[in-house]
């Protein structure tokens, strides 16, 4: 079992954090995992992305430059940049709230989540990444919703006011697809 996940969006949408939460979840169920961000010029504004590989075997290159299993596209430029690298039978989670682009999806599973809208409706635009995590839990067997709850609570342990919001975000995301 190997899952090659790319999470991409604007800086500030929490894509790197989302990748770390997914990594922590994989660790919790004793899977091998690597996380790597795009770094450098891209870091200073504009787009941000990270690649997470989850595997029951030793992981080779942490960089995902082909054969993406799951793409999480939080904005349109990210979708354009990576959708071509998603392999046949792979999945794409699209932040439908801010992405209208049409793309060739004949050989992929497309999940449309109004992540930004849901986040705004439940109280904070910044939890759009957690909404998407809820959706991700629905499509990846190894990632369980209750595990996500636990890890998210741990990750934001210093911001306990976010606990309820994040739980709601997870639930809404899970229900959205």
């Amino acid at each position: 079992m190997e899952r090659r996940i790319v999470i991409a969006g604007f800086g500030g949408q929490g894509v790197l954090t989302l990748g770390q939460i997914v990594s922590l979840m994989a660790m919790e169920v004793d899977l091998n995992v690597t996380w790597i961000p795009s770094y450098g010029a891209e870091m200073r504004g504009g787009t941000a992305n990270c690649a997470v590989i989850i595997s029951d075997k030793k992981i080779g290159s942490p960089i995902v430059n082909d054969k993406i299993d799951i793409l999480i596209a939080m904005n349109a430029p990210s979708l354009q940049k990576f959708v071509g690298l998603v392999q046949t039978g792979g999945s794409v989670i699209v932040n439908k709230s801010i992405i209208n682009s049409i793309f060739d999806n004949a050989d992929k599973f497309i999940y449309e989540v109004n992540a930004t809208d849901i986040a705004l409706r439940i109280g904070d635009i910044r939890c759009a990444n957690i909404v998407v995590l809820g959706a991700l839990c629905k499509i990846v067997n190894e990632l369980d919703l209750s595990l996500a709850k636990r890890i998210v609570a741990k990750k934001f342990v210093k911001k306990c006011e976010l606990l309820k919001l994040n739980e709601l975000a997870l639930f809404e995301g899970f229900q959205s697809i």
């Binding site: 660790m27 996380w35 790597i36 961000p37 992981i59 942490p62």
Partner: peptide, 10 residues
């Protein structure tokens, strides 16, 4: 290299 410095692993 940059990859090992930037990546995360358990």
């Amino acid at each position: 290299d940059g990859t090992l410095a930037q990546m995360m692993e358990p």
